[in-house]
Design a protein around this nucleic acid. Structure first.
Lengths: 264, 264
DNA sequence: CGTTAACTTGATAGCATTCAACTAGCGTGG
DNA sequence: CCACGCTAGTTGAATGCTATCAAGTTAACG
């Protein structure tokens, strides 16, 4: 129950700092947030469609997917979630889940009861506002995905998705310069971008052939950042980062070891 | 500046009642919310991509579109907005607009300064929570659109969109049974569903030919509600309505007169 | 070293786009 | 009053992107 993080390495603090300044007192409060830590294997669901959860899930380490399986069996992935995200914060105000939240990589999550979360927000209204802001940024990302899937063709779409993940990971200091771990299969990527798995494979061959990316052992290497952004029409405004991504990033943080199963 | 609505006909109250109960005192407060009313013609923008608005826009009457024009010129519509919606409530917490908000029909909007909005939320925290909840429902609708565009083919997609608009209008008592006004062109509908305008035309012919809908003077008539929902795999859970749509709706409210230009 | 999951490849089919006309309705101006 | 122009809707033909199906191949794991 006690926090295992100091106030600088706590994933939630690091995440909130990406979107707004966080004071010392606020850090203390966040680090003291009571939560139950749980380790999960890849491919496990945390909350499911139609559930009525009584707690929220803070991702401490790993990679989460938000998705839904339609009656016809088709799957759509709605978003990716990185450490510091609270993907089902919405359950605080929407009682029924309209989608499922699951792990894509080995993950450590902190479960926070709605009661504790409500008390915390009452006690720290400014962080409550930050939480609201965070859900609004989620919504902005959803919108961007709508446009990505609705109005771009496969190679542009996939390029855009890589741009987004890279920038988000960089902001969290969780990607090396031009390189990041993506613990997803091509099937996952296909379900996220609205194309078939076979075409995802061909699309990645195209991106590699065009010299925009390269892949190795579950890692994506951005071979031509300018070219990738250009193809994707990528503009990070919608991420509403406090500091826009640096054109020439310096070294800090490092990529995690690749997951054993996913190779991309 | 003074409210022109009694507490039962105020669009914002009617809208909030769709998602949660609203007390008498809260109605009074909402009706007294200071706003500047403005009438707009179709096709006008209210706030634009990259703007830094200092006020929010409450739709009192009409129909709004949220959209973005990409650098390549392609347009994607992200959402439709009905009376009672505050589509740019997010600008309270996200300073830069990442999309544009404009009218699709002759519309009356109420502009509320961020300062007034903040004071209002401070004075009525429960309504503040309702606002948060509303932006979360917006996000749920965005997610549904991602799945709609990403994993359904054109006829299913368009059917789903009609189902959604119909249910949302019904909930606001703004649609007759099986019939509603949709002040959008086929180009608009195409940009919302991620298909080409030509194919939207053919898709609507298909839906008409299948006996699912019929169209006349800017109105959509649901000819086969069951069939339409089935084709669309439509499940209204994601709208998070307080009362799920009635299978056999009774008569109340009536459709507005069709807009002179849009014919669908 | 067999098994499995993930990735890759080739061929075929199909849904949707694009281009280019053409029609219908409506308002404006001569 | 009718011609004109504009917008929205409709149609046909050709192209093309993407899906589907069916087999491989590769790499990790026990």
């Amino acid at each position: 129950m006690a926090s295992q993080f100091d106030t600088s390495s706590h994933p939630l603090i690091r995440k909130l700092e990406v979107i707004a300044p966080v004071s010392g007192a606020e850090r203390q409060a966040i680090a003291a947030l009571p939560m139950t830590v749980r380790d999960m294997k890849p491919g496990q669901d945390i909350v499911s469609d139609q559930d009525r959860p009584s707690q929220c899930c803070l991702l401490l380490e790993g990679f989460l997917l938000r998705y839904k399986i339609m009656p016809s069996g088709r799957r759509q992935i709605y978003s990716f979630h990185l450490p510091g995200d609270i993907p089902d914060l919405q359950s605080l105000h929407l009682d029924v889940m309209d989608h499922t939240l699951g792990t894509a990589a080995p993950s450590r999550v902190g479960l926070i009861t709605h009661n504790n979360m409500r008390a915390f927000i009452r006690a720290h209204p400014r962080i409550g506002e930050l939480f609201w802001r965070d859900t609004l940024i989620d919504a902005a990302i959803f919108r961007e995905w709508i446009g990505n899937i609705g109005r771009r063709q496969a190679n542009e779409r996939v390029a855009h998705m890589f741009c987004e993940v890279y920038v988000r990971l960089r902001a969290l200091h969780r990607a090396d310069e031009g390189r990041f771990v993506l613990p997803l299969t091509q099937v996952d990527l296909a379900d996220a971008t609205g194309i078939s798995a076979v075409h995802m494979n061909r699309t990645m061959q195209f991106l590699r052939g065009a010299g925009l990316i390269s892949t190795e052992r579950g890692q994506i290497k951005i071979a031509d950042w300018e070219g990738l952004q250009e193809l994707a029409e990528f503009d990070p405004t919608y991420l509403h980062l406090r500091q826009p991504p640096e054109p020439e990033p310096e070294h800090n943080g490092r990529a995690q070891p690749a997951s054993p199963t996913a190779r991309v």
